[in-house]
Design a protein around this nucleic acid. Structure first.
Lengths: 212, 212
DNA sequence: GCGATGGTAGAGACAGGTCTGTATCATTGT
DNA sequence: ACAATGATACAGACCTGTCTCTACCATCGC
């Protein structure tokens, strides 16, 4: 019975420190192609055969690396999740003090995968819109991403000194989801000025500048 | 199964003051079933056979009333569009003067099809997420809905006396889209308190109460 | 050096299922 | 009897996932 976990372990055992050869491994090519197609065309709209054709990989190579399409979708979302978390962590956070600019900058930063030509919104939100089954692992990954973002926003709201961090956090996440959805469905671009100004207004209000 | 649907016999009993009310039951049953299934399960996830089974209608009856599934999807969205427009028009608009409560109420109202048990967000946004082809008529309908909402919000922003109606309009629509998306993807319910408070803060800021 | 071996990958056929849409027959109400 | 509808079979396309066959390349035994 050949490998349960395909590439990673086998290559580390067999690799022998060899030069990373001519082209990327099949698994990487599959995942890159799938990520682009899933994001641009939609998960349900992209079939296995399309991924095969675009990545120049044999179908059996795909199914040796991913047990099913669902698992490939999960790998796509997991990679996005990791990338988004890393991007968030390394972000040039501008001194999260009692300054509105902190959270405003965070909300401004909250636009990964931002190809201006082919912006399709948040990949997790669209995945959740396409996959409604609550038991679907990909959907659960999407919801996990939302919780991660909420936790980070909440920490920033606390750091910014909001009177009610829960409320500000919820408001900013509403705004972020709205920016994603509007970038895809409306004609406003993702980096709309309204996002920044709304975030500033909400932060001002939450930090007592506007009311108390 | 003839006894499943009471509408079949109602057709002849109910005279219906309208002209061609007698022809509609089959078509209406199809459309009602399709609307519920499309909204709850997603458009791509629901096949013609499923609609047939749930509405108790023969397949040919469906294809006699709708030339294709795409046309049925368009009819579903068109009906939602009309309903949404009517709901918006008849809404108990609280005297759209220079009061923040006006737009706040509007944003609050902007949650149609709000079944608390099975909230799935904005049917137009999810349809646009599922159907990516820009030439798809259903997608164009979804975008038309967004424009309609924006126009109404803009009129309300003007009526509320915002300093920059365009900005406030964009901000409120961001908020609305965010509320829809969050109701579906996050655990916050659609009628979250954050929506109302954020709308109030944005309106206050736009009408000069918070800054100038 | 040289062939054998084993793991990886490409190409394509194929099976089984689902989807849309059409055609045909049966039923029912009037 | 007639028209509308239900029931069903079917065609063709597509999708997922399996299978076989072949090629390549690195290592291992000799």
């Amino acid at each position: 019975m050949p490998g349960l976990d395909p590439a990673a372990t086998d290559r580390s055992v067999l690799g022998m420190g060899e030069a990373e050869g001519a082209r990327k491994p099949a698994r990487d090519r599959i995942l890159d192609t799938a990520a682009e197609l899933f994001y641009r065309e939609g998960i349900r709209a992209v079939g296995i055969d399309t991924i095969i054709a675009h990545s120049g990989v044999a179908k059996m190579s795909l199914y040796r690396n991913f047990a099913s399409k669902e698992e490939l979708v999960c790998a796509y979302l997991e990679r996005n999740l990791v990338q988004h978390a890393a991007w968030w962590d390394r972000g040039d956070r501008p001194s999260p003090r009692r300054s509105a600019g902190a959270d405003e900058g965070a909300v401004h930063r909250a636009r990964p995968l931002d190809r201006p030509s082919e912006f399709q919104g948040c990949p997790f939100t669209t995945a959740a819109a396409e996959l409604r089954d609550p038991a679907n692992p990909a959907r659960m990954l999407a919801l996990a991403h939302k919780r991660m973002v909420r936790d980070r926003l909440h920490a920033l709201a606390v750091a910014a000194g909001a009177d009610e961090p829960d409320r500000l956090c919820a408001q900013l996440q509403l705004l972020m989801e709205g920016a994603y959805a509007s970038g895809r469905a409306l004609d406003l671009g993702p980096g709309n000025e309204a996002v920044a100004s709304a975030a500033a207004a909400l932060i001002d209000a939450a930090c007592g500048k506007g009311r108390a």
